[in-house]
Structure formats: C-alpha cells, structure tokens
C-alpha cells in the first residue's frame, strides 16, 4: 500500500511515496542513497543499522518507515556540520576506534544517543549501553575510550 511519508532527515524535510511497512534501513539505503547506515543482521541483533529518531537510537532494520512520519531522523551522514566532525566522530578518528569500519556508523550513532541522554555516562554505563552493538574486529576497548573522550569534550563545551 503506497502512501506519502514526510519526515526530517538530517535536518532537511523530505517526502517519499512508498509502502509505509518497508524498513527504514532499505528506504535509506536504496531509495535515498544513504549507504552509511549498514546492514549486518537484519534482525535487530547487531546494531550496524543504528540511526537516531527523535533523540533515541533505533535499529533501522527493525523500524518501519511509516513509524518515522513527521519525526526527526539522524544518520551518520548528518552528524558532521559545515565540514566539522562531531566530537564523537573526532574521538573515533583520534583513537582509531575502528578497523574494518563496518560497525562504526552504528557505534557512533548509538553513542550519540547515549550521550544525549546521559552526558555524564560512566565507563560502566557506556559498556552497558553499547553491549548490543557488535564489532567483529574487536575494536571494543578503543570504542569505549573514544566515547569517554567525546563525553569529556562535549561536557567542556564542544557539544551541539
């Protein structure tokens, strides 16, 4: 059943005509050409497809595009502004908190939602919040370091 769906994507209003039951992941990747959001499992189990909807981290593979109607959707492509990396991206870059990089967009978006919700997140809270995001390369120690670093930067005024 086709219908017209409007939402804000990375700060810009967009409108598409499609079946509202389709998953947000494939609408982003196929219809809108935003390939930064990754497919890793298709079943809500890996977090590679994590995007932020209205300040909450969601799994785009398990989210229908109809459910984001009139909402704000943020993907990895929308995180840096005016060519400046977000502090979380900057910290991932400096810590080399990736190897193959395939989990990275999902990790960054999940961390973004975590720090919005809890700017004071402790190491334990970071580990708990990130636990359902999988990384096969074993970048975990650096990802935790990077999120801690970003949290410090953002608290010191680098936040947006």
């Amino acid at each position: 059943m086709q219908s017209t769906i409007s939402f804000r994507l990375n700060g810009k209003p967009i409108q598409i005509r499609t079946d509202p039951d389709r998953s947000l992941l494939w609408v982003l990747r196929c219809d809108l050409g935003l390939t930064g959001t990754k497919f890793g499992c298709g079943a809500g189990l890996c977090g590679a497809c994590t995007v932020v909807v209205e300040k909450e981290a969601v799994r785009a593979c398990a989210t229908s595009v109809g459910s984001v109607r009139n909402k704000q959707v943020l993907t990895i492509e929308g995180l840096s502004r005016n060519g400046r990396l977000h502090p979380i991206q900057q910290a991932f870059l400096e810590q080399h908190a990736f190897q193959c990089g395939f989990c990275t967009p999902g990790m960054i978006m999940n961390a973004y939602a975590l720090l919005l919700r809890n700017p004071q997140a402790t190491r334990e809270e970071i580990i708990r919040a990130m636990d359902d995001n999988l990384c096969r390369c074993g970048s975990h120690p650096r990802i935790v370091e990077a999120i801690e670093q970003a949290a410090r930067t953002m608290r010191a005024g680098g936040a947006r």
Partner: peptide, 19 residues
C-alpha cells in the same frame, strides 16, 4: 600516523561493495 581510512570510516563515506 592517522590511519588513511580514518576520515571515510567515521563519516560513513567509506564505500563497501554493498554501497
């Protein structure tokens, strides 16, 4: 030094075969 693939990988611009 900074990894050569760093910027592309933290911005989602890195292209994999499915991209």
């Amino acid at each position: 030094p900074q990894r050569k693939d760093a910027l592309e990988k933290v911005t989602g611009r890195a292209r994999y075969a499915g991209d």
